[in-house]
Design a protein around this nucleic acid. Structure first.
Lengths: 150, 150
DNA sequence: AATAACTGTTGTGGTGTACAACAATGGAAT
DNA sequence: ATTCCATTGTTGTACACCACAACAGTTATT
């Protein structure tokens, strides 16, 4: 420690940030997301790819752009995502019945197994994080509030 | 609408994402952050730069790395940030008293005015977002839970 | 005096993301 | 049928963000 007149890391005044929902949201999300990324990395995918898997699994036959819209990102981002998931033999593009422009996305059998295994791990991770809350009721409250803020 | 067998955007099943705190956290944060970015953009800064301003204003004389640690990002990212804020005449680097390696960061007079004006707008924005919650008590609860998740 | 630790800085790479453009195709209007 | 516009997947580009490694200058430790 060189400077006698510099402030220690622990007693920094965060000012309005301390009670700012925006800042708190960002910090919580980054913390949550960092560990979730590690978990996904172990699975060989990314958080974004996992969310694509969830949508495709629950809604077989969806178009790439439909998935993109559901997840709130550009359809151009979907190309690389679907490419990767298809290379991993998790999902597949089938030509759409009535539209030769688009593909319908489906889960492969292996993709289904992979997804079920992954979801278990993701659910477990969520549960360990939720241990920081006091009750299931609190979690429901949190989710409800977050929905209203979206 | 071409495909009769493709699902409409509105009735997509989000599966486990619907009640996933991680996903809800991400969506809420992205929504919150997008509008906050616009607000900051009007002010001529970025959300990250604003957070630097808050820390420097409340803790005059801090080192660049101290600010970086407080905000949870790498100190290398602080260089461009401080450069920009210094170019905008908002803060200034002064040589640290007892350490010729580091700078001590201080607010300029203009920076102080700018900060107070900005904080008001940020606070107003937060308040409009908080209108989506039912009560101040709920907001406190939310902040409290988010802290526990960080 | 020597070695390690720390500071600001630069460069680099990876990631995510938004936007514009394009050819192919579909739908609607006339 | 033909024309015009919208949409799909795709590519390219650009930008922001962030982590990590390396470096010279400086400080702390031994």
């Amino acid at each position: 420690m060189a400077q006698t007149d510099t402030i220690n890391d622990t007693d920094i005044d965060f000012g309005m940030l301390e009670e700012s929902v925006g800042y708190r949201l960002r910090r919580a999300q980054m913390n949550f997301f960092a560990k979730f990324s590690e978990l996904c990395s172990d699975l060989g995918i990314s958080p974004g790819l996992f969310s694509v898997l969830v949508i495709v699994e629950k809604n077989p036959g969806l178009t790439q752009t439909a998935v993109a819209q559901a997840l709130g990102n550009d359809r151009s981002a979907m190309v690389a995502a679907v490419d990767k998931l298809e290379n991993m033999k998790l999902i597949e593009r089938r030509p759409a019945k009535n539209d030769r422009r688009s593909y319908a996305l489906f889960m492969t059998k292996y993709g289904q197994e992979f997804f079920e295994m992954s979801s278990r791990k993701v659910r477990d991770y969520e549960n360990t994080m939720m241990a920081r809350l006091h009750s299931d009721h609190e979690k429901d409250q949190l989710v409800d509030m977050l929905k209203r803020l979206s």
